[in-house]
Design a binder for these strands. Structure first.
Length: 468
DNA sequence: ATGTTC
């Protein structure tokens, strides 16, 4: 009778390579030794592998025990099938990233939106449904980045006739980049217990207080424009027609960015994946870290919403008017939703607009092209999603190198757009044609109306623009 | 996206 692997596991050997090495050694080197002594030796090697590193017979086993266990989680050989919308205009890097994402063992389904481009982990424009797992980089760095639109029963002619006053209103009531308000407005979100219960979130409360109501950098904006409603929005009693409107695009500022970084690091520590998938590390929702991230993510989402609401409140005061309707949606977030069979899945939308049946959303174009007010059709192959914009045609670096200010100025003049702030990296020509993108997702959303920007404010912070 | 490099 020889010692079995099962017996070795009883004395503490884990299933794996070291166990195999031990069994081989017993057979080759210790065949004549009593079993009880064999077990004693192996127990001792396991307890003190360092002591046996130079041992004539046991060094191979000691070396194996001293080698860190390879705890890399393998990707599935075959990824879950997924639908790509507008594939012909999507860069290969984004497709490659999606192909990796659907091979995660926790992946249930995926979809790629027509504005997709390469990001960290999941591509921007990527949608991924998982089982009981949340991927911090599947949500993105700017947790709860979102759109908010208010419609006013005010004459559209104000955009021309009161341009100076509206510009001033934007200058006085919005803050971009590193700028914050001297007098911040309180918000009920600061009473949330997550600010007490979660250490990392607690440490971020002061900065969140300073930044509330402000907008970020990059592609974030607050703009006045003309909305043309073509299909009545019954839930708000908004009839077809032209409306003065305010549209904002911003996220959760330092709060969300720090939460994202913190939990991504934890995820990458506990969930080791092959190199090409390492940024897709997930947190099991049954773990403490997973539950904490879920709460922190939801807080950051609500904070992003609160920032937009304060922006719109300040502007409503400036306009001395009450909005007819407010339409808003996150496009960097994870939601608990049901799949076709009624099972709960975690749907990550990283730069994708929720488009469940009857769900309203905003898909912006660029500073000189229209955005769209849409109603989702609830198409399951897109995991109830649509694009979150036109999508970049070129990187920020390439845009800054190849686009001339004069070209942008001419384009803005043509479109009748007044721009405050923004660098060449946000030039309209750095983006795909929004009309083509909308065509690629006709089956996903119904267009209820358009928004044409007229007075646009973006981040004018030079330091910000020189970065990346 | 980001007190823009823990």
């Amino acid at each position: 009778m020889k010692i079995t692997g099962k017996e070795l596991m009883e004395i503490g050997y884990a299933e794996g390579k070291a166990l195999g090495v031990a069994l081989t050694l017993l057979e080759k080197e210790y065949a004549g030794t009593q079993q009880s002594e064999q077990l004693t030796i192996l127990k001792d090697v396991l307890a003190n592998p360092e002591a046996y590193a130079g041992h004539a017979k046991l060094s191979a086993l000691a070396k194996e025990l001293l080698t860190p266990v390879d705890d890399t989680i393998a990707l599935l050989p075959e990824g879950k099938p997924y639908t790509t919308y507008g594939a012909e205009a999507i860069e290969q890097g984004a497709k490659d990233q999606m192909n990796v994402a659907v091979k995660l063992p926790v992946a249930v389904a995926g979809a790629l939106m027509p504005d997709a481009h390469q990001g960290y982990g999941l591509p921007i424009g990527g949608v991924l449904a998982t089982r009981n797992a949340v991927i911090p980089y599947g949500v993105g760095v700017d947790i709860g980045c979102r759109m908010c639109l208010t419609l006013y029963d005010l004459p559209v002619s104000m955009l021309d006739e009161n341009k100076t006053a509206l510009k001033k209103m934007l200058m006085n009531n919005t803050m971009f980049g590193t700028a914050t308000f001297k007098y911040t407005k309180d918000h009920e979100i600061f009473a949330r217990k997550e600010f007490e219960d979660i250490r990392i979130v607690k440490d971020l409360k002061d900065r969140a207080w300073k930044q509330i109501g402000s907008s970020g950098g990059g592609n974030h904006f607050v703009e006045f424009g003309e909305v043309n409603i073509t299909s009545a929005i019954n839930q708000f009693n908004v009839n077809p027609g032209r409306y003065l409107a305010l549209l904002s695009h911003s996220g959760s500022r330092g709060l969300g960015a720090t939460i994202a970084g913190h939990y991504t690091r934890i995820a990458m520590d506990v969930c080791k994946l092959p190199q090409e998938a390492k940024h897709l590390a997930w947190l099991d929702l049954d773990t403490e870290a997973g539950q904490e991230y879920w709460l922190a993510m939801n807080l950051a989402g609500d904070y992003a919403s609160a920032c937009h609401h304060q922006i719109h409140e300040r502007m409503a005061v400036g306009l001395r008017a009450t909005p007819l309707a407010m339409i808003e949606n996150h496009h960097n977030f994870a939601w608990k939703e049901k799949d076709a069979d009624g099972n709960e899945v975690i749907v990550h939308r990283k730069g994708a607009t929720p488009a469940g049946k009857g769900v309203l959303g905003i898909i912006p174009g660029s500073m000189a092209t229209p955005g769209f007010i849409v109603m989702g059709k609830g198409v399951s192959t897109s995991i109830n999603s649509a694009s979150h914009g036109a999508g970049r045609l070129m990187s920020r670096t390439k845009a800054k190198q190849s686009i001339l200010q004069g070209q942008v100025d001419a384009m803005l003049k043509d479109a009748g757009v007044e721009l405050i702030g923004a660098g060449l990296d946000e030039a309209p020509m750095a983006y795909k044609n929004i009309h083509e993108v909308m065509k690629s997702q006709e089956e996903l959303v119904e267009v209820m109306g358009t928004f044409m920007p007229k007075i646009v404010r973006m981040c004018g912070d030079k330091k910000f623009q020189e970065a990346d």
